[in-house]
Design a protein around this nucleic acid. Structure first.
Lengths: 216, 216, 216, 216
DNA sequence: GATGAATGAGTGTTCATTCAT
DNA sequence: CATGAATGAACACTCATTCAT
């Protein structure tokens, strides 16, 4: 994947710091007004730098969008594994992954929306890179599901499809948060969704296992 | 709703015809390149009219987007009731509604995506009008669910949340069609999703009812 | 002068009638919003005809302006001689001319303003034609002045310059009517202006003559 | 007056310089072809800058017109007081004011014409601001006349009306310069006009005073 | 490294004018 | 003669990007 964003500045640490400033500003503005309505000058102003400076750290306005979306996807890739760190039981790992995913999405629903809304504004290559990152996130879920199947706790279902249903569960909150917030909480939404899926996925052995867990 | 799009031409039939031309062209282009990257001239060219003519039937480029999204939402509001016309059994009606929704979305996944991507590009008023139409579509689903609950076939769940899960099922196909198409079909996707939800919603009485239906 | 406006319609009487409709509408609109801000469609609408029809009686939007200005200038050329018809005394003729000029201007100050504001919007040829008409109007005044000089009533002054001062007296009302109306009337304005000029122009013989007139 | 024109550039001196460039170019072009027929690109080209740059110093094409008219009116407000600086005698001050006014108008007759022709092309607020400036110029004249009346040199006439006659004298040169230049000079035009007004305004005491001045 | 003035290509929109009906 | 839908050239204005300082 050739999707490294070019910078004319060498000092890696400075590049990082500047980009963070810019990405933070851009995320807010893109979320509010969309990619196209947001001008580079607005981003620069909110980031507290000059418009010209941005082009020392990024080759185009599109690159900024790429960095923004990258940072969103990275937060997924960071948070889910973190939530799984100390969990060993396959079913518990699955549940933890789902909860973690929903939680990251819930923390910045606008960011997730942004990914849906603006990915197409990127060039083909960067679009592909973003999709690649999404697939990697999904693999975190597929692996959990596969493990639970291997352990005999989940039925032998289409793993990738199941993973996508989870993704849609999590993203669904972001997509419809404006309405959901009016009659439910993220936690409730997540647990009910989780129930739904467990219901459909657990084998009798899986059920027994779960009950055992709870009885402990 | 004050969201009628203004036309300087009076002949209703002509207005309808021209708008259809323009909306068809715009849907394709907006879907391909997004609202902002698409120029009015491109739309005009694809629609086979002059750029100026568009402004006889629409007051702004934004109006064209509104018309496009409106036509998408209208197709939902048209197709779902049609699918329910001759179905009386509450559970069957629910299933028919879900299948119909998934089918309309599947017929023009780009159009559904467009609604997600570009609704924010509209002015506040038109945005509200679109959301209103979406709510109306959802009510087609809530009514089905309520009826099934009233008949004792579905458990007493949060109706609106359930409806939204269905919406996300249907829209999910559009959102991830690029991937889904690689390993499943819309029908399979729909039926499996339906199963999932029925599993979670049916009461014992509902289950018995279903089995009876099939045995007939 | 090749400044005849072309019409594709032959029936002279109809041409006249239609043009009057259009000119009336255009005068109002040009006066209100200026030539450039006024659209042909607006003129057509106010005139109660279709936009296309105008082009049967006129070759361009500019032609309409020309007709409008022509009608203004013609009203000068018509009213001043009428006011002189039964007056034979040179000084009286001069006074009658001045009063008549001020009166026509006062009747449609907007129209006079229009001539100042929009003559430059015409093509060179039509601009020249309008100036020509203005010169003709001025000659009505110069002739009066010359006659009064010949009769020994006026001093031997620069006749054309004097005529222009009168023109500016009359036009001045239109140019500053928005202010003048607040503290004087057209009649007062006219008489005081006339006094001013007579003062400067009358010979002793002229003065005696005037006094004699009044004593009669 | 809320009629300050906005600039996105802060450096006051640069703003001043650029605006002067633009105003100079615009004055010429507006004078030649009128406000509406002149394109922003033409102005930019003549000013030797890019079209886009203009919008760093001005918010709209209309603002350029405002700046142009403002500069005309300012030249009046600057030159007339300057001409009065070392003159103390009321009648002399009046004469100096009239001569100064005619001279500024004569220096850029096109600019004065522009004010007549294009003030209506401004928005309501800027139109009002221009009229306000015109009133201020007029007050320079009224004050002279009032002083001469107070000193017993001028008769007790309607001061504002008299001031406007002077204004029309000065503007008259601009309005009809195309003709006047063919048979007289600005100086002659001015002096004769001044005579005319003095004739009508001076009291016997004023006459005596004048003669005295000359005899000195 | 940082600034922000300058560029100029690109776009939505208007409107005089034409012409099929 | 009359209509008004259709055309398309023209124009104000925006904004990503560059580069001299």
């Amino acid at each position: 994947m050739s999707s490294e964003v070019f910078s004319s500045v060498d000092d890696t640490e400075l590049v990082e710091r500047r980009r963070q400033q810019v990405v933070a500003a851009a995320t807010e503005l893109y979320g509010q007004n969309g990619f196209h309505k947001t001008t580079v000058k607005e981003i620069a102003q909110l980031a507290g730098v000059s418009a010209g400076l941005i082009y020392s750290y990024v080759k185009s306005k599109e690159d900024v969008l790429f960095l923004v979306l990258q940072s969103v996807l990275e937060s997924y890739a960071r948070e889910i594994p973190k939530a799984l760190e100390d969990v060993t039981d396959p079913v518990q790992r699955f549940c933890a992954a789902v909860r973690a995913y929903c939680k990251v999405v819930g923390a910045r629903p606008d960011a997730t929306l942004l990914a849906y809304r603006e990915t197409k504004s990127l060039g083909a290559e960067q679009q592909a890179a973003i999709k690649q990152m999404e697939l990697k996130t999904n693999q975190l879920l597929t692996r959990c599901i596969e493990d639970a199947i291997a352990a005999g706790y989940f039925r032998k279902i289409n793993v990738e499809l199941a993973a996508y249903r989870i993704v849609l569960l999590a993203h669904g909150w972001a997509l419809k948060a404006w309405r959901f917030r009016q009659f439910t909480s993220l936690a409730e939404y997540t647990e009910e969704g989780l129930d739904l899926f467990l219901n459909a996925m657990l084998t009798p052995k899986g059920w027994a296992h779960c009950r055992g867990e709870k009885e402990q």
